[in-house]
Design a protein around this nucleic acid. Structure first.
Lengths: 203, 203
DNA sequence: CCCTTAAGATACCGTGAGTATCTTATTGAT
DNA sequence: ATCAATAAGATACTCACGGTATCTTAAGGG
């Protein structure tokens, strides 16, 4: 199995290979069939090596997701609240689809008796986007005069994110049409705004 | 274990006892530690009896939830769109809390490779409430003149339910405060309505 | 009263998480 | 260059649990 890799990897190099193996295995067999043995096999190593680094499967999963979904740096100004909100939602979609419904549900569920790590996963996937909604999207909208600061409430901040992720959790998908509908039918109206003319709003 | 029950139960009586055992076991040990052996033990029976009735654990879980959460018959008229929407959300909360976050996530996740039964679970928990939102809540609001029929769109129909259940999925709870916030800050404004004066809207 | 049905007990298989143990390659220090 | 400490990799194990096969025996209907 390692005849062509006589070099025995260590430290970071090995860790990288393991993360990659988890990721590939996830894409190939999916979360329900993901096993530590499968990961070890694909990484060209063995189970004890995995358990020396991560205490259990869940930890390894979360670490892998962190590794492949680094934090976002900045969000370009889209010129309008609508454009900025859609941009954030598209980032969310990209990340959710990258990780996959089964994986997210699986990790959340595996946390039922031990929620440690949940926060980490959710923050990697969604929470930090709330920061963007507040710091970038809403702040700019206030500066533009689209909304007033009093409208920047917690519930409205996360409304588009919440609607998007529940749709993804249930259906496993998040089409562009849904994103626009969320913004134009729910988000903007809830802020007392109307989407620009010519924007189709599904009914 | 069955020394005090010399009678060997059959048919419906046995089935009832099994459902009850699943329910109790769920409350006591929680979904992650729920095992078929544990269920059988608590029901005073054995695994083969379970497998003669349900092909696998997931089926038994879904059947149990159906058994304890029968469909709703009617929703009394609360006098306003706001009151009716809150009523539906409170039903949703009751059911979600009854079943529990871990159980719902667990079943959804167990479906990742075989989604059969998902629909059943989701319909027992949420989907049929959409019917109520449409047939009762919105219809009455239209009759009262609070909204116009054109506002009865799919996305807005489920908006309160979606916001409520994502909050529950993530936090495992759904306080009354959240329900009111969902209705007053998101739902009614999205419909172009304002909550009545004196209604606190969290910020 | 007997015969069919199915409950309940028990033992089993397969799989996968997690661990213990041992050998050996790698690396850094001398 | 050599050697000791470290950790990789292989292997074999335990344990828990889902699911099945087999057998005995109680229930209940005719």
């Amino acid at each position: 199995m390692t005849a062509d890799t006589p070099t025995r990897r260590r430290g970071k190099a090995l860790e990288q290979a393991i993360y990659q193996a988890v990721w590939d295995e996830l894409q190939e067999v999916g979360f329900p069939k993901l096993t530590m043995e499968g990961i070890a096999r694909r990484a060209g190593t063995s189970k004890p090596v995995l358990y020396r680094r991560w205490p259990n499967r869940k930890s390894l999963m979360i670490a892998t997701i962190h590794h492949f979904l680094p934090g976002l740096r900045s969000l370009p100004d889209g010129g309008s609240l609508r454009a900025d909100a859609l941009a954030v939602l598209r980032i969310l979609r990209e990340r959710l689809l990258d990780v996959g419904r089964a994986t997210i549900l699986g990790i959340l569920m595996e946390s039922a008796d031990d929620p440690r790590g949940d926060d980490e996963l959710l923050s990697a996937l969604v929470d930090y986007l709330k920061e963007f909604m507040e710091k970038s999207v809403f702040l700019r909208a206030v500066e533009r005069g689209e909304i007033v600061p009093e409208q920047v409430t917690g519930r409205l901040l996360t409304l588009p994110l919440d609607l998007a992720r529940i749709e993804f959790f249930i259906t496993g998908d998040l089409p562009e049409r849904s994103l626009e509908e969320i913004v134009d039918v729910a988000f903007l109206p809830a802020l007392g705004l109307r989407p620009p003319h010519g924007t189709r709003t599904a009914g």
